[in-house]
Amino acid sequence: MIDFTAWDIVRNLLLAARWTVALSLVAFALGGLVGLLVLFARVGRAKPLRWGAVAFIEVFQGTPLLMQLFLVFFGLPLVGVDTPAWFAACLALTLWTAAFLAEIWRGCVESVPKGQWEASASLAMNYLQQMRHVVLPQALRLAVPPTVGFSVQVVKGTALASIIGFVELSKASTMITNASFQPFTVYGAAAAAYFLLCFPLSAWSRRLERTLHVAHRN
C-alpha cells in the first residue's frame, strides 16, 4: 500500500488544477467570443436573429449546466462526432458562458443612452459601425466588473466536467480520495485550491465596481 503524504496530495491537486485553469480559460475566451456574436444578434434589428438569441439565452440559462454537459457528451456521438470528455466540457461550458455573458452585456449596451444610437445613425453609420465606434466603447466600462465576476462562475462551473470524466481538480480529488482514504483533507485542500483561484477574481471584480462608481459620481 502506498502512503499518501500531505505533499503528495497537494502536488497531485496542483497538477490537476492546471486543467481547471486551462478549461476555465478556454471556456471564458471562446464563451466571450460566442457571447459577443449572441449579443450582436440580441440587440440588433433583425427579428429572426433576435429571437434566436433570446431562445439561446433562455435555454442555456434555464437548464442546469450538468444537463447541458450530458446532452453534448451523449448527443454529439449520435450525429457521428467523436466526443472525448475534454471536448464536451469545452463546448458545453463555452455555450453556457456565452449565454450568460451575452445577457450581462446586453444590460450594459441597453444602459447606453438612446440618443447615442440616434446620433450615430444620423452620421450614416451602419449597425456594426454604431456598435464598434459608439456603443461598445461606452458599454465596456460598465461591463468589466460583472464580466470579471462571472469568470468566478466559470471556474466553479468547470468542476462539473469531472462528472463526465474530465480529470481536473474535482475529479483528481475523488481519485486521490479513493487511493488515500482521506476525504476530509483532500476535499478541504481542493476547496482551498478553488478558493485561491476564485477569490482574487471576486475581489478584483468588487474593486472594479467601486472604482467605476467613483468615476460615475465625478
Binding site: S170, Y194, S202
Partner: peptide, 8 residues
C-alpha cells in the same frame, strides 16, 4: 461563494 457546489 468562491468554491464549487460539487466540492462543498
Amino acid at each position: 461563494r468562491n468554491t464549487p457546489f460539487l466540492v462543498q
